[in-house]
């Protein structure tokens, strides 16, 4: 529906990709690990290789969790924007299908968080 208004109602979205200085936003969530209260938001260059993201970005977000060092990355399952996803480590985020404001979620089988509480 359009907004009921007294005149023309058209405004620029505040979060267009151009506003992020060459980065695009990526949302990231480690499932069943709610010690981290919410998914995080990261401004990342679309040309960053997925492997670099894994090595340089992801640990900075989640390594405080005691389960983090237990993760067997070969067993991890991923979804990107709701679809099953197999990352290509050498390819860039963009070539892996990441757009502006894409949501990446991952599951770590066998790890149930603090005292099995999924935290």
């Amino acid at each position: 529906m359009s907004v009921a208004s007294i005149g023309k109602y058209e405004f620029e979205p505040l979060d267009k990709v151009e506003n992020f200085h060459g980065n695009q936003l990526t949302y990231l969530n480690w499932e069943q690990h709610l010690l981290f209260c919410a998914p995080v938001c990261l401004p990342l260059p679309p040309e960053m290789p997925f492997g670099a993201f894994m090595k340089e970005v992801l640990p900075g977000v989640y390594s405080k969790h005691p389960d983090f060092k237990e993760i067997n990355w070969d067993e991890v399952t991923w979804t990107l924007d709701g679809d099953d996803f197999t990352p290509n480590m050498a390819a860039s985020l963009a070539d892996n299908g990441f757009g502006h404001k894409s949501l990446l979620r991952f599951w770590t089988p066998g790890l149930d968080g603090i005292e099995g509480s999924h935290s």
Partner: peptide
């Protein structure tokens, strides 16, 4: 938590609320 959170576009609260039938899984809509 050292990383800024993802926010809901409407209520603007960090996306920390779960599916109420599955309280260990964050609720996502897009």
């Amino acid at each position: 938590n050292d990383t800024l959170p993802m926010l809901c576009q409407v209520c603007q609260i960090p996306m920390g609320f779960t599916d109420m039938d599955d309280p260990t899984t964050i609720s996502f809509e897009v």
